[in-house]
Design a protein around this nucleic acid. Structure first.
Length: 127
DNA sequence: ATTCTAACA
DNA sequence: TGTTAGGA
């Protein structure tokens, strides 16, 4: 099952095709790279080359953005994952990753200023 | 024709 | 984020 991983990580798309595939503007795609969300390869002429994994992540980012999250919030989500994959000890929480993301999302929504947690009653109590 | 960086009437 | 200038 390693051939598959190789292909998904193989950079074969130009920013132009990624734009069509993700419906994002070149500006956004480059900006998300600046934020450390993706790391496309570069050709000898400095052109960006994206892999399927890169495209998938961009689509995820687009979803998070649609849910009202800001860059710092999204950045944290991927940073958390990176931390966990580097800690073989915490096997326990490896299974809660998906739910963890959910919690992070809500927590960040509070800082997105589009909500008033002040007078809302109980949905955010145990976050 | 495409993409890149930098910058903002 | 959009857009544009000036290069590659």
């Amino acid at each position: 099952m390693k051939e598959k991983e190789l292909r998904r990580s193989m950079a074969v798309f130009t920013i132009g095709t990624v734009m069509k595939l993700t419906d994002l503007t070149a500006r956004q795609i480059r900006y998300y790279e600046e934020q450390g969300l993706i790391e496309p390869q570069r050709t000898e002429t400095n052109r960006r080359m994206y892999s399927l994994d890169n495209v998938d992540r961009l689509l995820e980012i687009k979803d998070y953005l649609a849910e009202g999250l800001n860059m710092t919030a999204i950045r944290r989500i991927y940073d958390e994952k990176q931390h966990k994959s580097k800690r073989p000890q915490e096997v326990k929480e490896h299974h809660l990753t998906d739910d963890d993301v959910r919690r992070i999302l809500y927590k960040e929504l509070l800082n997105t200023s589009s909500f008033n947690p002040n007078d809302t009653t109980s949905w955010n109590k145990n976050l």
